[in-house]
């Protein structure tokens, strides 16, 4: 998804993961309308949708391992979640996920001691242990240098492909969109103004779309 700020990209992602309730119409997420769902059924659907939020929404006071394990709270019973805060559970999976984002050596660090880019990678690692069918990413590359941005987007796409699902990302950089996505949707003021496979687009098309040379 591309579009100027205020176009409705984050709102659209929020509609999909249930953070925003539609005021009109309905949403189909993985074949189900979440609106009538309650309790356990809703949680089961939400556990299948993973989100990298724009402001990350990590808990700074927790160690990295707990923030990554939070990806499994949809499937863990409350007792196990509580015990894990005392004695971290499922450490091998956490370490494997952190290794994929190059952060294995910081697993027991407090999250608020990490830099912005490192926190972004913690958020990605949380998704790696959640193993969702649908991956949503709101500006996942905003705090990363170009090489890391490529790597993170690659990982997210890989993750979605492993589960047979899709990656939906909002991006500010047309080059990234062209490299990592198969389809580009342009939003302006809440309306779809562009919907094309990447192969039919050039960087020039998107540059005019953003209205500024990049």
């Amino acid at each position: 998804m591309v579009g100027p700020s205020g176009a409705g990209k984050s709102t659209l992602l929020g509609l999909v993961n249930g953070a925003v309730t539609p005021t009109a119409g309905s949403v189909q997420v993985l074949g189900t309308d979440p609106a009538p769902l309650r309790g356990r059924a809703l949680r089961r659907l939400r556990a299948r949708v993973g989100t990298v939020h724009q402001h990350l929404e990590l808990v700074g006071q927790l160690r990295v391992v707990h923030n990554v394990n939070a990806g499994r709270l949809g499937s863990w019973p409350a007792g196990r979640a509580a015990w894990s805060l005392v004695r971290p559970q499922g450490l091998p999976e956490v370490l494997a996920a952190l290794t994929r984002v190059d952060l294995a050596d910081r697993v027991f660090e407090r999250t608020d001691r990490l830099s912005g880019g490192q926190r972004q990678r913690v958020a990605v690692a949380r998704l790696l242990v959640q193993r969702p069918d649908l991956v949503l990413a709101d500006e996942p590359a905003s705090a990363l240098d170009p090489a890391l941005a490529d790597r993170v987007l690659g990982l997210l796409a890989e993750l979605a492909a492993e589960q047979g699902g899709a990656l939906v990302a909002s991006l500010h950089d047309p080059a990234l969109a062209l490299r990592h996505c198969t389809r580009v949707v342009g939003l302006v003021a809440g309306r779809v103004v562009l919907d094309a496979p990447t192969s039919a687009l050039t960087a020039g098309d998107l540059a005019t779309f953003y209205g500024a040379p990049r």
């Binding site: 659907l45 949708v49 989100t51 808990v59 700074g60 939070a70 990806g71 979640a81």
Partner: peptide, 24 residues
């Protein structure tokens, strides 16, 4: 927002409280 993020990935009320509210 951190607690809302946990709810969005399917965490129950108790787990959301333990991970999203208690530490802060």
């Amino acid at each position: 927002r951190p607690r809302a993020a946990l709810a969005a990935l399917g965490a129950g009320p108790a787990a959301g409280w333990l991970y999203g509210v208690l530490p802060r």
